[in-house]
Computed example of a mutant assay.
Amino acid sequence: MEQENTNEQMLKQEENEALFKQLTKRNDQYMMNLDKALIAANISEKKRESIYNDMLKTLIKGQKSGQTARQLYGTVTERTNALLEGPKEEETGRSEDWKIMLDGGLLMGAMFALITGVSGFIGKGQGSEMGLITMILNFIIGGFVILLISKNVPDKNKTKKGSTLRYILISTAGMLGWMFLMTASMAFIPTSINILLPGSVNIAIGVVAFAAKMYFKRKLNIRGGLF
């Protein structure tokens, strides 16, 4: 086994020597500086040869389209740090329910507020007023509906019967329920409590909510929502 590893390393060294000769001056200098940095960081020769083998093949391929080592890997310091830290594990799967609900609630709330506000200006004031309680409920119920729908999105990798029909039914029921509750809140909650908001305020709330959605999606790395 040890002999096999030695032979493999020797073959890789020979291949690397041949690949080095194909580098441009700039890329060759980059690799020389990287080699010094990795030696200073006590990276074993075997590991260095393996790193260089992968990098050299990428560099030579990139040279054909004019790409340099710095463009592909960043500075020597950045590449050295990346190699020392090792590859970062990519986060996969769905985010927690509350994150998806937050993302969905902000989206639905923003859309509803913007549509209501803009329709007011188009309709000369009619439909531009939304109650404060209705607005708050819109964000909460909208988030819950998006969470419910996202949990029932058909899995492309599975062929479970009825999953698509279930998704359509739940999506339709969820959206209809959301619209019904919004309309009912405006109809049955007295304006003394459900204080009416003018169209301009609705638009402002919509813009802020949409900006908040984009911010939290990046900040919390929200995965598994609909949008």
Rank of each mutant, 00 (worst) to 15 (best):
M10V: 12
M10C: 04
L11C: 06
L11I: 07
K12D: 05
A18S: 12
N27D: 14
M32G: 03
M32E: 14
L34H: 11
L34E: 13
D35N: 15
L38W: 03
A40M: 11
I43V: 15
I43E: 15
I43M: 14
S44T: 13
K46Y: 10
E49H: 10
I51G: 06
K57I: 09
K57P: 00
T58A: 14
I60E: 00
K64C: 01
S65R: 13
S65M: 10
R70T: 12
Q71R: 13
Y73H: 14
T77M: 11
T77I: 08
T77N: 14
E78P: 04
L84S: 07
E85D: 13
K88S: 09
E96L: 12
E96C: 07
D97T: 04
K99N: 06
D103A: 13
G105E: 05
M108A: 07
M111K: 03
G123N: 10
G123P: 00
K124F: 08
G125H: 07
Q126W: 02
E129S: 12
M130C: 09
M130A: 11
L132R: 02
M135I: 08
M135N: 04
I136K: 00
G142T: 04
V145W: 02
L148F: 02
L148H: 00
S150G: 06
V153E: 04
P154L: 11
G162Q: 02
T164P: 00
L165H: 01
L165I: 11
I168F: 10
L169E: 06
S171D: 04
A173P: 06
L181G: 07
S185V: 07
M186K: 00
F188G: 00
F188T: 01
I189V: 10
I189K: 00
P190M: 15
T191H: 09
S192G: 15
N202G: 08
G206Q: 05
V208W: 04
M214N: 10
K219D: 10
L220W: 15
I222P: 03
R223N: 11
G225P: 03
G225V: 05
F227C: 05
